[in-house]
Simulated scan of single mutants.
Amino acid sequence: MSRENTPADQGEQSVNYAVVESAIQDAQDHLADAEEGIDNAFNDDLADIRRRLKQIENAVDESQDDEESQALGIVPAQLDYIQRAVEILQEQTGHDVLDDVERSLEAVEEHTERSTIEKTRWFAEVDGSPEVFSEKEVQAHRLKKVGDISGQSENYTLYAVPTPTASPEDKIAEFPADDNRADLVDVGPYFLTEKAEGGVV
């Protein structure tokens, strides 16, 4: 997963656009190849990954055309989303047809994470479902709806947890009310929901 911007004194550098564009194209090509071995039931997931890869590609193109552009601001969060979506798809399909896609995404990450990127999107994962938000502080009800809830979101408590495999007992913060605001940088990006009367959803 993409990390926070590396401070300038730790080796920030400009993006090597040729390398990044090649890695994105590789990811797109490998995804197209992998689709032949994936059940049609996952077509919507694949289309979502394709769409987000295209957004990254467009952002790189825009940034290259205008060096002052903040177009790359969407890249870290969208890359986190795609990487997690690919991992989930791997788990659901039970085979490794997406391994080449994962390697290409790692190459995109490697060549963007050390550059100066002012983030304009933030990644979160709720009950194992990834999402991207346009602000770093998100109301709890929006995060709850990303998760695996049924009925009214006000009947659920949102927990920030340290890892995707953590449990509510590991919480680092909790947001019981829908209008609570969770900072995806301070406490995110991993969350769980739990119904008020108990039991992880």
Rank of each mutant, 00 (worst) to 15 (best):
Asp179His: 10
Asn180Ser: 15
Ile149Asn: 08
Asp179Gly: 05
Ser150Met: 04
Val146Ser: 01
Asp170Ile: 05
Ser150Leu: 03
His141Ile: 10
Glu169Tyr: 00
His141Gln: 13
Asn155Lys: 12
Leu143Arg: 11
Val138His: 06
Glu154Val: 12
Thr163Gly: 02
Asp170Lys: 03
Lys145Ala: 13
Phe175Ser: 06
Ser150Asp: 11
Asn155Trp: 05
Ala160Val: 11
Gln139Gly: 04
Pro162Ser: 05
Glu174Gln: 15
Asp179Phe: 06
Gly147Pro: 11
Ala177Leu: 09
Gln139His: 07
Ala140Asp: 08
Phe175Met: 06
Pro168Ile: 15
Pro176Val: 03
Phe175Trp: 03
Asn155Glu: 14
Ala166Cys: 08
Asn180Glu: 14
Pro168Met: 05
Pro164Glu: 14
Ser167Asp: 13
Ile149Trp: 09
Ala140Gln: 09
Glu174Ala: 12
Ala166Val: 06
Ser150His: 08
Asp179Cys: 02
His141Gly: 04
Thr163Cys: 04
Pro164Trp: 12
His141Leu: 09
Ser167Val: 14
Gly147Gln: 15
Lys144Ser: 10
Asp178Cys: 09
Asp148Val: 12
Glu174Tyr: 07
Gln139Glu: 14
Ala160Ile: 08
Pro168Gln: 07
Ala160Asn: 09
Thr157Tyr: 07
Pro176Asp: 00
Leu158Val: 12
Ser150Phe: 03
Glu174Arg: 14
Ala166Gly: 05
Glu169Trp: 01
Lys145Val: 06
Asp148Gln: 15
Asp148Cys: 02
Ala177Thr: 09
Asp179Gln: 12
Glu174Val: 10
Asp170Leu: 03
Pro168Trp: 04
Glu154Pro: 03
Asp148Glu: 15
Phe175Pro: 07
Asp178His: 07
Ala173Asp: 13
Ser150Thr: 14
Gly147His: 13
Pro168Ser: 06
Pro164Asp: 13
Val161Asn: 00
Val146Trp: 00
Ser167His: 09
Thr157Gly: 09
Lys144His: 11
Lys144Thr: 12
Gly151Asp: 13
Ala182Trp: 01
Pro162Trp: 05
Val161Arg: 01
Gly147Leu: 15
Leu143Gly: 14
Ile149Val: 15
